[in-house]
Amino acid sequence: MLATRVHPLKHHHMTRFHCLFIALAFMSGCASLHHAQLGQIDNRQGRSGKPFVILMSETGVSAEEIGQIARVTNSRAGNALGDAAAIIALFQMGPRTGNPVYSERYAERLLDRIYENCPSGQVTDLMSIREDRKYPVISGEIVKVTGLCLDANPVAQVNGVSK
């Protein structure tokens, strides 16, 4: 009877181990770049402005990874979950960049966001980046835009080019 009881300290260590494992799994997020494009650069003398960064993101979920992890448990419930994940994956066919997300509108307000950062519209050095940060099962699907909002003062003329 005594031999089957779990020592309280051992149980405590197991919980700590699990917490550590979960924390490590989520710390192992890998960032990957899918697309980057740079626009016009206004690098004339006398130019000054305020840089800005716009981040828009949505949570991506991988049904395939859920199925794989569930099957690793090798239990009846795990296998059933794996089968369910495989069926759901059939409803998610098509070209993908990163994991599927459940809102396609998270980046639609990009133009408004640029004007929120630069109401004058004097924007240059715009760089559009599509990347993701991947964790087990879930990911952050990110659209990032960086730019420079030029000051309202006219830019000095260089080589006959004026603003």
């Binding site: 960049t97 997300v101 396609e104 640029i114 715009l126």
Partner: peptide
């Protein structure tokens, strides 16, 4: 898994032109 049962989308690219 329950979260994955909705309509899924994938955004491949968002680009912004010059102003």
């Amino acid at each position: 898994l329950l979260m994955t049962t909705g309509c899924a989308h994938s955004i491949h690219e968002v680009h912004v032109s010059d102003f």
